[in-house]
């Protein structure tokens, strides 16, 4: 450190030289990261592009190309079962992810900011529990449990089961956001005679928001993709899209599924564009 302090002038000059020769030095910018992120998104979307291309495949098979056709879209739109399944999936995911996020947010506030208390680790363990039990085990156990307590709410059963396993997925990002976040803003707000609720609403909540958003997204995608638990706990009339797809094993997966996935994808992209435009205007 002392040696460094002695060399301030030289290293400043060196840094200036660096700035001149290389890309402009922006604090916190890592030039390789941009490339990395592009690779990352390419990795994420390459299979999705393949999937979209094959939704326009004339062949019955989802992976053997013959010629261009939009037949699968027409079939998907005329297929009541697949439409109902998609609607069920969206409903369940929306409700379960929202419920799980609210529950996880409250729990994270207490567990991260509420200090240590007896049973702290236990509560943390309990919240992570749904993550740690293999899906098929949760599925069979929940089926037996629902039957034992006589719970039969149709879609409600699925929503409850999904909420349970969504909680840890919503909780983890919120916890990551909250830990080490300093409390000076809240203290300042309280010093300014804001009551607890106002301090929470105007200070803590906005600070937590990125964690909550991330948590909600994770909960949503974990719910919309679940199959094993849904298969077991679903009552009559609550077939979801993943269950529909897994039932195809016997007859082969058709591009109809690709078509539905593409439509869902288009809808989600539409939402993203909307949110981007709204955010930019503000």
């Amino acid at each position: 450190m002392t040696a460094d302090a002695g060399n301030v002038a030289t290293s400043k000059a060196a840094a200036a030289a660096r700035r001149r020769t290389r890309a402009p030095f922006v604090t916190g910018e890592y030039p390789g990261f941009r490339f990395f992120t592009i690779v990352f998104f390419f990795f994420l979307y390459a299979p999705i592009l393949v999937l979209i291309v094959y939704s326009f495949n004339d062949n019955r098979s989802a992976t053997l190309w013959t010629e261009f056709s939009i037949d699968w879209y027409i079939r998907a739109f005329n297929n009541d079962d697949i439409r109902r399944a998609a609607l069920n999936s969206l409903t369940i995911a929306l409700v379960a992810a929202s419920a799980a996020t609210v529950i996880a947010t409250l729990a994270a506030l207490i567990l991260v900011r509420g200090g240590r208390f007896p049973g702290h680790s236990l509560a943390y363990g309990l919240i992570s529990l749904p993550l740690m039990v293999p899906e098929i085990v949760t599925a069979v156990a929940t089926l037996s449990f629902f039957a034992a307590i006589g719970l039969s709410l149709g879609l409600g059963n699925v929503i409850i089961a999904h909420t349970v396993f969504c909680i840890p997925f919503a909780y983890m990002p919120i916890q990551a956001r909250l830990s080490d976040m300093d409390t000076t803003f809240e203290q300042a707000a309280q010093d300014l005679y804001a009551n607890d609720w106002n301090a929470f609403r105007h200070v803590t909540l906005p600070l937590m928001m990125p964690g909550i958003v991330a948590g909600a997204m994770l909960a949503f995608i974990i719910s919309i993709d679940d199959v094993i638990i849904t298969l077991m706990v679903a009552g009559a009339g609550s077939t979801t899209l993943p269950v529909y797809i897994y039932g195809m094993v016997r007859m082969g997966v058709t591009p109809e599924v690709n078509a539905v996935s593409t439509v869902l994808l288009a809808i989600s992209i539409l939402f993203v564009s909307l949110s981007w435009m709204i955010n930019r205007r503000r």
Partner: peptide, 17 residues
């Protein structure tokens, strides 16, 4: 959102891709 959108598609279908 762009990170999560691919995951709206079912795992089995993504694996097929």
């Amino acid at each position: 959102l762009l990170v999560t959108i691919p995951f709206w598609t079912n795992l089995l279908i993504r694996t097929f891709a």
